[in-house]
Design a binder for these strands. Structure first.
Lengths: 207, 207
DNA sequence: TGATTTTCCCCTTTTATTCGCCCACAATAG
DNA sequence: CTATTGTGGGCGAATAAAAGGGGAAAATCA
């Protein structure tokens, strides 16, 4: 059973009152808070709210209103669908935390970009010198254009996929450069390579 | 039963209204919102939407429209909160993308944890050997307990803040170990140190 | 006994419903 | 090819009921 506008106002008022005072309001206090002249009106509202199961009360007991779990849940649910993390400042070794100018927040959209984004889990250490480690999650954006130096996921000759830095070389050749001194660059003709995505972000989770 | 264009507009308007106000609109409010001059028109739309089972209402009751579970589900599916990124598989240098078993998704909550989380931007390279770089964002959780080897943000002697690995040493001493061979560990009495947070995640954004 | 809650009867405002009529467009029967 | 019919969309006005509100007295706690 849905609430009317007024009924919701009454319910919200009671919720706020309880929140502030830690005890429930009398009809008089509700009437004053909502600018009502008659307690009968308050009583009517409370009655319909009880009928609609948004609160309970003891018969003829003063200050006995209790909000139902249902309402409290709806309140909570309407709030946190998205997660934002406050960005408090910058940290440098050996100096206090520099606070950020305004109250900034981080959210996933900051990393995911706007377009067609997907994720992969990194296996191996071929990009370790770029500080992309085994087990890291990477976010990639499907792109049509790549610039030299971009880190990309490339499909080579239709069967082998790899994460490397992308460079154009003379003679329609692409150099895929690992960031690991133990590994050698891969040179492939441009027609044998297909770019599946460009690196947007690295996400690493601890424990 | 499919909806016409106009019917969908009406339904979406109601859904948005409910979302914003937490109570359902009157026919008048719907009329205003959709720029209709007659309540009869609104009534007709509501009636067909009810017949097509996209919503319910109480006869002659004001503000009693309730969207059907069916519609709400469709909404949720078609409007992903943008916070979820499909995890397509794992990538290893030199082998095809291994696909992940189920259709997995990544979202921010996976990294942020559940408790009191905050973010800082890293300055400097004192943790470079742990592949935490200048400019990276780190997510931290306020904790009361720390285990040896955890990466923490520590406040030393009330004025200096730093990101280091945490180890207990004999004699009520803490060793804060940088991950940079050029830097030496810091040894401080346990009473001079205050742990501000434990590292949950590293987030790095490219361009 | 005093502070509250409940009830009864009345009023006003808001809201939903119904009825008749209009237009545009598409499909279809003649 | 034109006339007819059906359907979605829309307008205004009249009507009736629900929701909102009031005063005062009765009934209950505590």
């Amino acid at each position: 059973m849905a609430l009317t506008k007024r009924q919701k106002q009454v319910l919200d008022f009671i919720a706020n009152f309880v929140d502030e005072h830690q005890y429930c309001p009398s009809y008089e206090e509700i009437a004053r808070g909502l600018d009502l002249a008659s307690l009968a009106t308050v009583h009517k509202h409370i009655s319909v709210l009880e009928a609609k199961n948004y609160l309970k009360r003891g018969f003829n007991q003063s200050r006995s209103i209790e909000l139902s779990a249902r309402y409290l849940q709806e309140q909570r649910r309407s709030k946190p669908p998205m997660r934002e993390i406050p960005l408090l400042g910058r940290i440098a070794a050996g100096s206090p935390v520099e606070s950020v100018e305004q109250r900034e927040v981080l959210n996933f959209a900051d990393f995911a970009g706007s377009g067609d984004t997907f994720a992969l889990e990194v296996r191996g250490n071929s990009m370790i010198d770029d500080h992309i480690c085994d087990g890291d999650m990477i976010l990639l954006e499907r792109v049509t254009e790549v610039r030299d130096g971009d880190i990309v996921v490339a499909l080579i000759a239709g069967c082998e996929t790899t994460l490397k830095r992308f460079y154009r070389e003379p003679g329609d050749t692409i150099r895929l450069q690992p960031a690991n001194s133990a590994l050698k660059p891969i040179l492939v003709p441009v027609r044998d390579i297909q770019i599946q995505g460009r690196l947007l972000a690295v996400l690493r989770k601890y424990k």
